[in-house]
């Protein structure tokens, strides 16, 4: 498996015009038509999607929805009478916390978040990986700036509670593995001009899990090489991938 295939395979279902940023579409568009492995994979994924679409949940009997509405109406009336509708204040403790603690506490909180995601001791999954082809220093600076902003975005998105997180009956969802933020350049000889690509939300572990040992070996060697020759600038431990 070529390493571009490994990077692109998770986006295949979005080919040619799905839920991807423009650069992702154009990368896919320049790779997939010329790659038989990706075309094959895409055809199979599309068959699965077609099978799901062709097998919708059975429409219930005609009387079902009348019954549904009547039952639910009784429950809603009862809830309204019992005054169960939650007072607004109980719902947003996460958002009220900073107000209660005041601005100094907020500053400490932000500092904590910043250290958490950028500090030297941050868990490996939360660090950003940056690798790119040998490039003049300005480009390198750019990459770093990009990485920082990506890390900030990631920090914000991880810390912001989702709308219904506070609903009493709604337990926390299972934890998602943290994702890596990766900035890479396209490979030598890639059909697109060399440019930096922000692969935010690229989950390295998920990618590696989908490869055979040999593919993994080649892939990691490649990244190692880039790290050694200076084209991968961010210190990044590879041992966690073993």
């Amino acid at each position: 498996m070529k390493w571009q295939c490994a990077l692109l395979k998770r986006w295949l279902p979005e080919y040619p015009d799905g839920d991807l940023p423009a650069w992702g579409k154009s990368w896919l568009g320049s790779h997939v038509p010329g790659c038989s492995a990706c075309r094959q994979e895409l055809a199979e994924l599309r068959q699965v999607i077609a099978a799901i679409e062709a097998t919708p949940v059975a429409e219930p009997a005609p009387e079902f929805w009348g019954e549904f509405s009547r039952d639910l109406h009784l429950k809603l009336v009862q809830a309204a009478q019992e005054g169960q509708a939650a007072p607004e204040a109980t719902s947003s403790r996460w958002f009220r916390l900073p107000y209660l603690l005041g601005a100094p506490a907020m500053a400490v909180l932000l500092l904590y978040v910043a250290v958490q995601f950028t500090g030297p001791g941050a868990p490996i999954q939360e660090q950003a990986v940056v690798m790119h082809l040998p490039a003049p220093p300005p480009a390198q600076d750019q990459a770093l700036v990009k990485r920082e902003s990506a890390a900030k975005r990631a920090a914000v998105s991880r810390k912001a509670p989702a709308p219904a997180a506070e609903v009493a009956a709604a337990p926390a969802l299972p934890m998602e593995p943290m994702e890596q933020i990766v900035t890479v350049a396209l490979e030598d000889g890639a059909p697109l001009p060399v440019e930096e690509v922000d692969l935010s939300s690229w989950d390295l572990d998920a990618e590696l899990a989908g490869m055979t040992d040999q593919e993994k070996h080649v892939f990691l060697n490649k990244m190692h090489q880039r790290k050694k020759d200076g084209s991968c600038v961010e210190g990044f431990s590879f041992c966690s991938w073993g």
């Binding site: 809603l76 809830a79 309204a80 169960q84 509708a85 939650a86 007072p87 607004e88 109980t90 719902s91 947003s92 709308p163 219904a164 506070e166 609903v167 009493a168």
Partner: peptide
């Protein structure tokens, strides 16, 4: 319905 007021 019960938590509708907590919806932003």
């Amino acid at each position: 319905f019960v938590h509708i007021r907590s919806f932003r």
